[in-house]
């Protein structure tokens, strides 16, 4: 996995809600059943804020959010949709439960980048190394850095998120008697 991303900065404010701003929860249900396929969910990411976001966003683009990104009921679907779009995420802060969901969604992230808002504006071209925490604003010639994720959590993201990582764990702990 390449931990470096280069693309457009999509800058948002504080307190983006999981169930409305990031992805309207009602859209998760198809025929009454929740859908967790990133290829479906990606069509609805941020559309309540920017109606054509899924068409305009490109793999490698980076969402830069303010404080408490992903507040609210910790539903993962919007984060899966972001991963489906191939986005990266930098936030000033996220609630702990959302932090967990970001990792589970396999979304490269720098979730506690205090003053990121001071270094980037919407539309800037960014190059981000999620392995080291280095951010380079190519539009403004500014560099800054944040604490990267611990290795154990990056490993989950590297495997593609929660389910592939759990599959590995199931094999590791030899629970074959529960397997087909």
């Amino acid at each position: 996995m390449d931990w470096t991303m280069q693309g457009r900065c999509w800058k948002f404010g504080d307190n983006l809600s999981l169930d409305d701003d990031i992805l309207e929860f009602a859209k998760v249900f198809v025929g009454g059943v929740r859908v967790s396929d990133p290829n479906y969910l990606k069509k609805h990411v941020f559309t309540n804020l920017i109606p054509d976001f899924p068409e305009r966003a490109k793999p490698g683009d980076v969402v830069v959010a303010g404080k408490r990104f992903g507040q609210g009921n910790p539903h993962i679907y919007g984060l899966l949709g972001m991963a489906g779009l191939g986005l990266g995420l930098i936030a000033e802060s996220v609630p702990h439960f959302t932090y967990r969901m970001i990792v589970a969604a396999g979304l490269p992230t720098l979730p506690f980048f205090n003053d990121i808002g001071a270094h980037v504006e919407d539309g800037d071209e960014l190059r981000v190394d999620f392995r080291t925490g280095d951010v380079e604003n190519l539009s403004r010639g500014v560099r800054c850095r944040s604490e990267p994720l611990p290795d154990a959590l990056r490993e989950i993201i590297e495997r593609g998120g929660f389910l592939p990582a759990l599959k590995k764990r199931l094999t590791d702990i030899n629970t074959n008697r529960y397997l087909k």
Binding site: R100, M101, L170, I173, T175
Partner: peptide, 11 residues
Amino acid sequence: LVFEFPAVLAT
């Protein structure tokens, strides 16, 4: 554990 609950069901 919400989305990660299948881990509990499995293990």
